[in-house]
Simulated assay, not measured.
Amino acid sequence: MDAEIIEFPEQGRDNRLASAIARLEAILREVERVAADEPIAGIDRLLALMERMGDQLVGLACYLLQEEPKLQAQRAFISLSDKIAETREALEQLEGRKQT
């Protein structure tokens, strides 16, 4: 895996926003790489990346949105995390059936 150096700017709303966007872009590049290089074997990795991406998007929502829309974004990504957990469980069950 290629190492990336992400500079964390000085404190301040604009700088924190730029830093959060840079972290999100790094996750997106990793998703593209995993999807291209390991489409089947990388499903669990892609699910983990989706969770990280959701966390970063919630972080961005905190910088950009007012309180109510921010809470809606948090609830949406909690729901996404629940769906990812359900997907993992389903994949584990499928893998268990294939091995028997």
Results as ranks from 00 to 15, higher is better:
R29F: 03
G96D: 13
E7R: 13
Q74K: 15
L94I: 05
R52Q: 12
L80S: 07
F77N: 03
M50F: 04
R97N: 01
L80T: 07
R88E: 04
A36P: 03
V34R: 02
I40T: 07
I84Q: 01
A18C: 08
I21G: 11
N15G: 13
Q74V: 14
A36K: 09
A73R: 03
G42H: 00
R45L: 11
K70P: 01
K70H: 11
G42F: 00
A20C: 13
G42I: 00
D2S: 12
A35W: 05
G96R: 15
G59L: 02
S79E: 12
L46P: 00
E10A: 13
S19G: 13
E10W: 02
F77A: 03
D44F: 00
L91G: 00
Q99V: 11
L17Q: 06
L71I: 05
R33Y: 08
R13K: 06
D55T: 06
A22H: 03
L91F: 07
E51S: 12
L28K: 08
C62W: 08
P69S: 09
E51A: 13
Q66S: 06
Q72S: 11
Q11I: 07
D82S: 13
A26H: 07
E95F: 06
A18Y: 06
C62N: 09
Q93L: 10
A61I: 03
L65E: 15
M50V: 12
N15R: 11
D82Y: 07
Q93W: 00
Q72A: 14
D82H: 06
D44E: 06
A18K: 13
E25M: 08
F8N: 03
R33D: 09
N15H: 12
A48G: 05
G54W: 10
E86R: 07
E67A: 05
L28D: 10
E4C: 14
M53L: 12
Q93N: 13
D2P: 11
R13D: 11
D14N: 15
I40C: 01
A41M: 05
Y63C: 05
L71H: 10
E38P: 00
F8I: 09
R97D: 08
R45V: 02
D2A: 10
A26W: 03
L80W: 08
L28C: 04
A90Y: 05
I21A: 15
T87G: 01
F8G: 03
G54Y: 11
V31C: 03
R97T: 05
L60V: 12
Q56V: 09
E92I: 04
E67G: 04
K98G: 04
D44R: 00
G96T: 13
A20L: 10
A85V: 12
E86T: 06
V31S: 01
E92K: 02
R75K: 15
M1Q: 08
A41V: 05
